[in-house]
Simulated scan of single mutants.
Amino acid sequence: MQEAEQIQLIQNFSNAFGPSGYEQPVVRLYRDAVAPYGTTTIDGMFNALTARNGNTGKRPVVQLDAHADEVGLLVQAVRPSGLIKFVTLGGWVPTNVPAMSVTIRNKRGEYVQGVVATKPPHFMTAAERNTVPQIAEMSIDVGSTSREETINDFGIDTGCPIVPTVACQFDAKHGVFFGKAFDDRIGCAALVDTLATLDGEALGVDVVAGLSTQEEVGLRGAYVTARKVEADLAIVFEGCPADDTFEPDWLSQTRMKGGPMLRDMDTTYIANPQFQQFAADLADELHLPYTRAVRTGGGQNGAAIGYWKGIPTIVVGIPVRYEHTAFNYTALSDFQASTQLVQTLLRRLDAATIASFSSVD
């Protein structure tokens, strides 16, 4: 894809509404973007599987993965005052939620603006000023004055999904995006870019791209796509949390403008070491920047896919600053280096190479 197309694609995915379980707008965007490059089917969880044009059914199958969902919130109930009680979809830190501007999709499919309500400091006690309220104590205000108005006029009740209100911006001078949901909308764009770039090329493998759902609430969609694809090898595109703003240089393993992160380990997963080294050696050959990461927290779809049949699996992470908050940064150069690496990997893979990743000799 041309750079201008990549930028627009990333912005479109970032702006799309799609918390866990409610990813339909993201899936529509993906389905339409990949229509020229393969055949897409969508299941009842909204997982989208795209069989690449030119697949033969006779070659090893590589599953590409990215997840459609973003961390969000969900209406639990409406209080008598009209304020909205909510729960989280995915991992939020309570300190990042108060005063956040949000968008709620109501029962009629309309989008309603609101704010996570906070008590003005004029009314706070000394103890309240130094205490962070828990999620269960927080509310969202949409400008209503009663429970009846919120439910009947605003159309908001139990089960309505919520995301932060953020418009994605691109700083062309510095090559950096500022927006929401780059975990994992940057990976969604990488799936599309990879299919578009490889369109019409002869490969030694069949490719199925899986846009999975509900990753942020337990890798749920990827457990389903793994069983449907029955792949021989998997590559996961993930928007991964950058640590360069708080770790010393010697310990930082995921840096914005540092290229893709090849994840060796997290709490759910250990990469296939032969495949991981193959990818690292290829990045060196291509003179692409990258990092290796051993994580003591986190998890991603590589676990759900790789541990279904024990297939060789790697995670190609695109660094994202301030994941699981309303506002993220990510760099275009990291996106481009990550997609270049995966596209070249796909050109190099064949049955013998894939078999070598399972060798113990």
Rank of each mutant, 00 (worst) to 15 (best):
G297L: 11
Q343N: 13
V294D: 00
V71P: 01
T103D: 10
T339Q: 05
T40G: 00
T296Q: 12
G239D: 11
A189V: 08
V229M: 07
Q2N: 15
S139Y: 14
P121Q: 12
G218S: 11
G155E: 09
Q63N: 05
T88W: 00
N15V: 10
A172V: 14
H324D: 03
M100V: 05
A231I: 15
P289Y: 04
A127P: 05
L49H: 00
P120T: 13
V71A: 09
D65G: 06
K180F: 07
D32W: 09
A68D: 03
A351S: 13
F237R: 02
G299P: 06
R263F: 02
S252N: 04
T50M: 06
D157G: 10
L286C: 03
V342A: 05
L262Q: 05
E247Q: 11
M138C: 04
M265Y: 14
I7E: 12
G200E: 12
M1P: 09
R263G: 01
Q340L: 13
M45F: 08
W308Y: 15
A209Y: 02
W250F: 15
N15Q: 11
G302N: 07
P312L: 09
G302H: 12
C240D: 07
Y30G: 05
V93Y: 08
V166N: 01
A51S: 14
G159W: 01
A4D: 15
L89E: 10
F246H: 00
A33C: 09
